[in-house]
């Protein structure tokens, strides 16, 4: 697949604080890339670097193979932090004005408004819009000119549950029908989990991991929970069958990471060793649990 965005060794320093520490990122055509991290982890700064809104101390960003933003700017849509909109204009006027700027057809403005669910706003000025409506308009502006790559920073901020679902469906639709590639940052990990095909986990300015959604699902699956009457005894028996570092326990619950296939063997050994096994079942981490583990919290 073609490279849509390749960032290499991005370093950004504000004063004495290094906000991005040699961050790398690879996004392929068709990806919906979920960029996750705590507040202040460096997500927005990284996206700002890609869009030339701020300059890194070192590192390199290439788009659509080996091009710079200045060469392909019109093919990249974005919504970073609060949407940039003319507050004294209506939603349609905003779209028309930005369409002129981006060399797109201004007459497609009503179509875009409909796409983000703002077709009934009429002559209402943007200054009277709610936070969610402004966010939708920001997404519509990002979609002007049929961009091939969309960067959305917290796109569902301020949206109600219905709005979140609509934007989620829109992202999937644009990805499937128009082949648009996405880079999306969000705190709402479960929501992100419903659309993302690849993840990047950033913590304290460091990219901890880039992982395919499929691979992540596999990783999350491999966990065995065993409810026992004597945890200490169960742990010592289990340690002879599975790796000790994969074992953890709390009260009467023993957890075995990554060795689900040994469930029967463990059950037999525990029963033979005199441990009462009340329940044994495989389960999976949520994205949130995986993320918390990955950042060490």
């Amino acid at each position: 697949m073609a490279d849509m965005l390749v960032a290499r060794d991005i370093v950004k320093i504000y004063g004495k604080r290094t906000v991005l520490k040699k961050v790398n990122m690879n996004i392929q055509k068709g990806d919906i890339y979920g960029f996750i991290g705590k507040n202040g982890a460096g997500k927005t700064t990284f996206m700002r670097v890609i869009l030339s809104l701020t300059y890194p101390q070192s590192g390199d960003v290439k788009l659509f193979g080996d091009k710079t933003l200045q060469e392909v700017g019109l093919k990249v849509g974005s919504l970073i932090e609060a949407p940039g909109i003319y507050k004294n204009l209506t939603g349609e006027e905003n779209l028309r004005r930005f369409s002129i700027l981006y060399g797109a057809d201004p007459d497609k403005a009503p179509e875009l408004l409909k796409l983000v669910g703002l077709n009934n706003t009429g002559k209402k000025k943007v200054k009277d819009y709610s936070l969610g409506m402004r966010q939708r308009l920001g997404i519509a502006i990002a979609l002007i000119g049929d961009p091939e790559l969309l960067l959305l920073d917290e796109p569902i901020n301020g949206l109600d549950p219905e709005g979140i679902k609509e934007i989620r469906d829109l992202i999937l639709k644009l990805n499937e029908e128009k082949g648009i590639t996405f880079l999306i940052s969000s705190h709402l990990l479960d929501e992100l989990g419903k659309v993302v095909t690849k993840y990047g986990i950033i913590n304290d300015g460091e990219m901890l991991e880039e992982i395919d959604a499929e691979e992540l699902r596999e990783k999350c699956k491999q966990k065995l929970t065993i409810e026992v009457d004597d945890l200490a005894k169960a742990m010592s028996i289990a340690a002879k069958i599975v790796k000790e570092e994969n074992l953890s326990g709390n009260k009467h619950i023993m957890t075995v990471e990554g060795e689900v296939s040994k469930a029967a063997e463990l059950n037999t050994a525990l029963v033979k060793g005199g441990v009462a096994v009340k329940a044994i079942y495989p389960n999976s981490d949520t994205l949130e649990e995986y993320f918390m583990k990955r950042i060490g919290e």
């Binding site: 809104l53 933003l69 970073i80 940039g84």
Partner: peptide, 18 residues
């Protein structure tokens, strides 16, 4: 200054205008 107060300046830069 309206570009900065409305936050629209980033829409120009992010689409490749220098």
């Amino acid at each position: 200054c309206s570009d900065f107060t409305d936050g629209t300046a980033k829409n120009f830069i992010a689409r490749g205008y220098s």
